[in-house]
Design a protein around this nucleic acid. Structure first.
Lengths: 189, 189
DNA sequence: AAACTAATTCGACGTTCATCGAAATAATTC
DNA sequence: GAATTATTTCGATGAACGTCGAATTAGTTT
């Protein structure tokens, strides 16, 4: 299944259970199979309303219908429910919900405010989260897998702001770059 | 927690995740902590909208806020999420959603149609599900833990309908009563 | 064949709710 | 202290959705 399809299925699953009466229907079907008419009587709803709810739940795959004589008997699909619950326990499922969104939108907004037309920062932001956006931007001047002397680092950072020392220090603090213990060698993570 | 409170909490949990943008927020927070402004930029929403969503998610216990400098950083409460997912795997949780509903409403509706003013059935229903309602009603003339001869069974069932043989046979078929292998002893389950 | 029962579909109504802008609150920076 | 930044609250608006009644379809009983 595609990632966008997966997040779409997750959303529709929650929407299917986000109504009081639909949730009651699922609870009733967890006890025994029931026909539309029976559910309507129990919940004091019109059959057409219950039919709509069951149609929704069927579309999501939570219930299924079995024709018996001239009416339909609905049953709960426990497998689909458990599979959904289990996928909620995995980290990737939730992150997939945020797939396709523009995660760099905030960084761009910050850079637009602080970056001058000459490509230099007028001043470095005070706020932690904004400074992070700046650092994620300037770290791109360094290639991965290559070592730099402190002098080289300062020269490259100098095109962005005069306070190269602060930039260098925070890059290391944020874990975007690393420094060899005693010597002056830097490299990008 | 009370049963009705539990089903209420379950419903609000689903409603909290039944919105596309709220689901995306949860997905984003599954990757890293974020402030309101950042989420608003990423999802292209106004900060007030995001604040409302986060207020909802906080109320349900899915996220929590940590004040930093003069803004709030929100983080996902993985524990609450996993606890909810795990409870979905248990049978009792869903049945609790249908607690407090009138499960006998359909049976009463059927009995009202078939039961005469003298307490006897004018005729026995053809439909399976309606016959079940009748059987669940007539089985109450028998005490649990006591044995009856076939003659006693027929006399007790006779007050409801003349066709005691059918009633007796279906009571056993539906598992509401049991019969000793060779002899003529019956008892209620 | 006619009457009956169950379920679904469709259109309409009313409520809920997501979204926004404006105002208010609070904390920080210059 | 004044201006800035981030967040929250509140009222309004528009869209989404649950509910119902009427009409339709399908299957059953007599």
């Amino acid at each position: 299944m595609d990632v966008s399809e997966q997040s779409q299925a997750l959303l529709e699953f929650f929407k299917a259970l986000a109504d009081a009466n639909r949730l009651k229907i699922v609870g009733l079907l967890a006890r025994e199979e029931l026909a539309v008419e029976q559910i309507a009587a129990i919940l004091d709803l019109r059959p057409s309303t219950v039919s709509n709810h069951l149609s929704y739940l069927t579309h999501v795959g939570l219930v299924s219908a079995r024709p018996q004589s001239y009416y339909n008997v609905y049953r709960l699909e426990l497998g689909a429910l458990h599979e959904m619950a289990r996928s909620l326990l995995s980290q990737e499922t939730l992150q997939a919900a945020a797939e396709g969104v523009d995660v760099d939108a905030y960084d761009r907004k910050v850079l637009k405010n602080y970056l001058g037309p000459d490509g230099r920062f007028k001043q470095l932001p005070m706020q932690f989260k904004k400074m992070q956006a700046v650092l994620r931007y300037v770290v791109n001047v360094f290639e991965v897998g290559r070592q730099y002397t402190e002098k080289e680092v300062n020269e490259l950072l100098g095109q962005y702001h005069e306070d190269t020392a602060q930039l260098r220090r925070e890059l290391v603090e944020q874990g975007l770059m690393a420094r060899e213990g005693g010597g002056g060698k830097y490299w990008r993570i």
